[in-house]
């Protein structure tokens, strides 16, 4: 493979990553701030670190989903976050720039993903 082809492939790879990376926004909790970015291909908020290196949140959404079912929601539980609980992924509630609350599932490496995306991935 010629040098120019390799360069083209590298440029194409980075451009394709840029194409799926949506807006980034700071989310905050009681004591932490976490920058999350929208991945338009996975339709999920992911930790910003997932743009720069491999992370478990992205890996989970990219590989085939495990077969998981949840109990029926009780007392108005959020049906999407029940999937995080069933997968034993701690849920953290953060607030976006406008103060609205949003749950996120926490993976072992600390990366965060949107429970709605996890729920859709499992039901797919």
């Amino acid at each position: 493979m010629s040098m120019s082809k390799i360069c083209t492939l590298i440029i194409f790879y980075f451009l394709s990553r840029l194409a799926v990376a949506g807006p980034c926004e700071p989310f905050s909790g009681y004591t932490i701030k976490e920058q999350l970015c929208w991945d338009d291909q996975l339709k999920s908020w992911l930790s910003e670190s997932c743009l720069k290196k491999k992370c478990e949140a992205r890996a989970f959404l990219e590989r085939p989903a495990p077969k998981v079912t949840t109990e029926a929601p009780v007392g108005g539980q959020n049906p999407a976050t029940l999937f995080c609980h069933t997968l034993k992924l701690p849920v953290v509630i953060l607030r976006d720039a406008r103060g609205n609350e949003q749950s996120f599932c926490t993976f072992k490496d600390g990366s965060l993903a949107d429970p709605n995306a996890i729920e859709r991935h499992i039901r797919k």
């Binding site: 959020n78 976050t81 609980h85 103060g99 749950s103």
Partner: peptide, 13 residues
């Protein structure tokens, strides 16, 4: 009054 998220806790009331 922001949009809230009750997560897996049955506290809708």
């Amino acid at each position: 009054i922001p949009v809230m998220d009750q997560d897996g806790v049955g506290l809708c009331h």
